[in-house]
């Protein structure tokens, strides 16, 4: 988790998304501990209350759970919850801007699809 914070979104949301990404990418598995409020505060030089708000957001969504006196842990369903959430917004967050730019620079549907196929073929 060394990504830098930016100005485009409230910091607590960025903290929540950093944790989510680490869970989706398999860096943090179910029942593993995530960094504490204080660790986030120190690493990113942010107010601990801000870090706590980001973490609590994930608790509310069933992605993290609290073990009293120990810390915050990843729930069993965390990955599924995050995948569902992120897949749902994939169209508006990624596809729509992609189509907008494609239109702007006169890319055809075929060219766009070719790019995507090419991208997938480089995957392995």
């Amino acid at each position: 988790m060394t990504e830098r914070l930016n100005e485009d979104q409230p910091i607590f949301i960025q903290i929540a998304e950093l944790i989510e990404t680490s869970i989706v990418e398999g860096d943090r598995l179910a029942n593993e501990q995530v960094p504490s409020t204080n660790e986030f505060a120190k690493h990113y030089q942010i107010n601990p209350a801000t870090a706590a708000k980001g973490i609590n957001l994930l608790v509310d969504q069933g992605i993290l759970f609290k073990k009293r006196g120990v810390g915050m842990f990843v729930t069993e369903d965390a990955k599924q919850i995050i995948l569902a959430k992120r897949q749902e917004r994939f169209y508006t967050h990624y596809v729509q801007p992609l189509l907008q730019e494609a239109k702007r620079i006169s890319l055809t549907q075929e060219q766009l699809l070719d790019f995507i196929k090419e991208g997938f073929s480089h995957e392995d």
């Binding site: 505060a41 120190k42 030089q45 107010n47 601990p48």
Partner: peptide, 10 residues
């Protein structure tokens, strides 16, 4: 200073 302030505050 920011590190120290946060640490001291925590």
């Amino acid at each position: 200073f920011y590190d120290l302030l946060l640490q001291s505050y925590q």
